[in-house]
Amino acid sequence: MAEENRHIVFVCSKGTLDMAYPALIMGWAALGNGIDVTIFFTFWGMDLITEKRIDHLEIAPVANTSMKMGMMGVPGNLGIPNLMGALPGMTAFATGMMKKKIAEVEAPPVREYLQMLVDGGANLYACKMSVDMMGLKKEDFVEGVQDVITAADFMDKTEGAQIIFI
């Protein structure tokens, strides 16, 4: 009976809107199934926990070969030409479209989703080197970020866990 509970760790290293969701979705599913969840935010992933950035995550159509006009109901395999994607307003346009798609599947915005995970018992940590490099302080983070930790601390906290790098 002394068996240790399953523990999944997500390393969030990306700060784009689309890459914010995998850890949220899988982390939420894990918590719902009684699995311990830890999320470590590093480099661009710091945006997901930074108060000033969390509501302003974006997705750019430039150099995104998977973003096809099919998402907007245009038939075929037509992409958004990079030259067009570089025009002012195109990133905002793509972001708006992605947010709409996310809402359509009833997934909440990143801030609310992250709060759900915190309420469900997820442990959030920020990367020390990223914090130093980006000039951030613990006060810059959303509620629920427990601590700023080093890579060595991360190794200690994740012993025996399953780790997913995003």
Binding site: G32, N33, G34, P108, D119, G120
Partner: peptide
């Protein structure tokens, strides 16, 4: 779980304490 919290008004925190270790 989200349908439960929005439908009942029970918060996420409460739901996880009412049914600990995997409410889903």
């Amino acid at each position: 779980l989200r349908q439960i919290t929005t439908g009942t008004g029970v918060t996420t925190k409460e739901l996880f304490s009412l049914f600990p270790k995997g409410p889903a």
